[in-house]
């Protein structure tokens, strides 16, 4: 079987397993999975820039928020329906990531981290500043009646689960395909040795900008999905912790792997859940991870066992 087919088969198996989960798992866990899948999309978007291209952003909450408020404000204030709302969220994220990419990519390394952090902070503060529209920290809620797409009520738990799964699968397959294209391979080359990639004739700046835009738009999709499926938008989602979470999920699950972001999100979610919100446990796990499994869960699996893992 060719490498590509194996990858798609693995992803298809993953999706199938998630379908089965809905019917097999108790309601509580199935509900969690819907939330986890939405945030896994965010993590997958982040992974594209960090895991594959090697650019560490500390400001992805800006893109998540752009999607969230793009959809949220369009529906809440503009009165549009879910379909155009999703479009609004995506366009908002696309534009914001384009602008941030254009400016921030003039820097590298730590300066890049701080610049992205600053843009995200400015975004968070802007949400607070325009509180008359965004309701700031308190946020706003989308009425259940509006959260329907093509006649399907998305506030219903089953519909919500499968909507999240649909989006998750779409992004998973997209990334699985992308990382095996010449473009995707070049991103890895940039991560591994940027100067060598440049001197092979690749336009590094253009590749990085495309990576930022794709990464930002996928993150925005997650934000829009969250707002649509769970019905709320709050300033907290644009604050610094929400920029750190995807980094954490990706590092935990395995950076530069397609399924790592999902594994990391799942792991972190249940770690916090089981420790009763006691972040100290999470803290110790992270330190242990850094010491003993630096490539993340799937990263270590790929290193030691399944070398073809995408």
């Amino acid at each position: 079987m060719s490498e590509i087919s194996r990858i798609h088969l693995l992803h298809a198996a993953m999706v199938a397993a998630l379908v089965i989960c809905w019917f097999v798992l108790p309601v509580y866990h199935a509900g969690n999975l819907a939330r986890i899948m939405v945030f896994a999309i965010y993590a997958m978007g982040y992974n594209l820039l960090f895991g594959y291209t090697g650019l560490l952003s500390l400001g992805h909450a800006l893109f998540f928020g752009a999607g969230m408020y793009g959809l949220g404000l369009a529906m809440h204030l503009g009165g549009v329906s879910a379909g155009p709302g999703i479009l609004a969220g995506l366009i908002a994220a696309l534009v914001v990531s384009g602008i941030v990419g254009f400016l921030a990519l003039r820097t590298t390394g730590v300066a890049f981290m701080i610049v992205t952090l600053m843009f995200a902070q400015a975004g968070y503060l802007a949400v607070l500043l325009f509180g008359t529209y965004t309701r700031g920290d308190e946020g706003f809620v989308l009425p259940q009646a509006t959260r329907a797409l093509l006649g399907v009520d998305l506030s219903d738990a089953q519909n919500r689960y499968f909507a999240a799964l649909l989006l998750f699968s779409a992004v998973l397959f997209f990334i699985g395909w992308l990382v095996r294209t010449p473009f995707g391979r070049c991103l890895v080359a940039i991560r591994e040795n940027e100067e060598r990639a440049r001197m092979l004739g690749y336009d590094i700046t253009r590749h990085k900008l495309m990576a930022v835009i794709m990464s930002g738009t996928i993150s925005g999709l997650s934000g829009a999905a969250y707002c649509l499926l769970f019905g709320s938008a709050q300033a907290a989602f644009v604050a610094v912790p929400y920029s750190i979470f995807p980094l954490l999920y990706v590092l935990l699950g395995g950076m530069g792997t397609t399924l790592g972001p999902f594994v990391g999100t799942l792991f972190m979610f249940y770690l916090i859940d089981w420790s009763g919100g006691n972040m100290m446990v999470a803290g110790f796990v992270l330190v242990a991870l850094a010491l003993f499994a630096p490539a993340g869960i799937l990263g270590e699996v790929r290193r030691r066992l399944i070398t073809w893992l995408p």
């Binding site: 954490l248 803290g283 330190v287 010491l291």
Partner: peptide
Amino acid sequence: LVLKRLEYDPERTIVATIGLLYIIQQG
């Protein structure tokens, strides 16, 4: 105890210090 053993690798240090942040804050 920790950072030295990570050989101050940038990404591992970030993860470890995030862990430290949670530990200290929760403590």
